[in-house]
Amino acid sequence: KTYTFRVRIVDEETGEEKEIEVTAKSEEEAKKAAEELKKKYPNLKVELE
């Protein structure tokens, strides 16, 4: 079973919002993916929905 999570990304500089879908095998995995995004884009606000 896989879970699909919507991750909302807000670029703090431009105020631009993007939504991406993360497919993960567990909620834990999705959280890790969101953390990776935060590391990659430090000025983005990442929200897991």
Rank of each mutant, 00 (worst) to 15 (best):
T23M: 12
A33N: 04
K31W: 14
E27P: 12
K45L: 10
K39V: 09
Y3C: 06
L48T: 06
V10Q: 04
E17P: 03
E35K: 05
E28W: 10
E21I: 15
K39D: 05
I9N: 00
K31Y: 13
V46K: 02
E49Y: 08
E36V: 09
A24T: 06
E28L: 10
K31Q: 11
Y41W: 09
E36M: 13
T4D: 03
K39S: 08
I9M: 08
L44P: 02
A33S: 06
T23L: 12
E12H: 09
D11F: 03
R8N: 07
T2I: 12
K31I: 13
G15L: 03
R6A: 05
L37S: 01
Y41C: 05
A33T: 10
V7N: 00
V7L: 10
E28I: 09
V22M: 08
V46Y: 09
I20F: 12
E47G: 05
Y41T: 02
T4P: 04
I9D: 00
E12N: 08
K32I: 13
E21G: 02
K18P: 00
K1T: 11
E35L: 11
F5S: 00
V46W: 11
P42S: 05
L37E: 02
F5R: 00
V10R: 12
E27N: 05
T14Y: 01
K25R: 12
R8E: 01
I9Y: 13
E49D: 12
E19D: 05
N43S: 08
E16T: 07
A24I: 02
E28N: 08
T2E: 12
L48S: 06
K45M: 08
K45G: 03
A30T: 01
V10Y: 14
P42A: 04
T4Q: 05
K45S: 07
R6Y: 13
E13D: 10
E49R: 02
K40W: 07
K40D: 04
E36N: 08
K1G: 10
A33D: 02
K45D: 04
T23Q: 13
L37T: 02
G15W: 03
A30V: 06
T4A: 05
G15E: 01
K38A: 12
E13N: 11
K1F: 10
V22L: 12
E47I: 15
T14N: 04
V7S: 00
E12L: 12
L37K: 01
E47R: 04
V22K: 00
T14K: 02
T2G: 07
K45H: 09
V10N: 03
E47V: 15
T2W: 14
I20N: 00
L44R: 05
K32C: 09
A34W: 15
D11Q: 01
K38T: 07
T23S: 10
G15R: 02
E36K: 07
P42W: 03
L44C: 15
I20H: 02
V46M: 06
K38M: 14
A24E: 03
K1L: 10
E35D: 10
K32H: 11
T14G: 02
T23H: 14
A30Q: 02
T4M: 06
E28D: 10
V7C: 04
K25E: 13
E13Y: 09
T23P: 04
N43D: 07
E17D: 04
V7W: 03
E49A: 12
L44V: 07
E29H: 05
E27C: 15
E19P: 01
Y41D: 03
S26W: 01
K40Y: 06
D11R: 01
K1S: 09
E49W: 05
V7M: 05
I20R: 01
E36D: 10
K32E: 11
I9V: 10
A34L: 15
F5P: 00
E47K: 04
D11A: 01
K31C: 09
E47T: 14
A24V: 12
V10S: 06
K45C: 07
K18C: 15
E13R: 12
Y3H: 08
K1D: 11
E35N: 08
G15M: 03
L37C: 06
E17C: 14
Y3T: 05
E21S: 10
T23V: 13
K40N: 06
I20T: 02
G15Y: 01
D11T: 02
E16Y: 09
L37N: 01
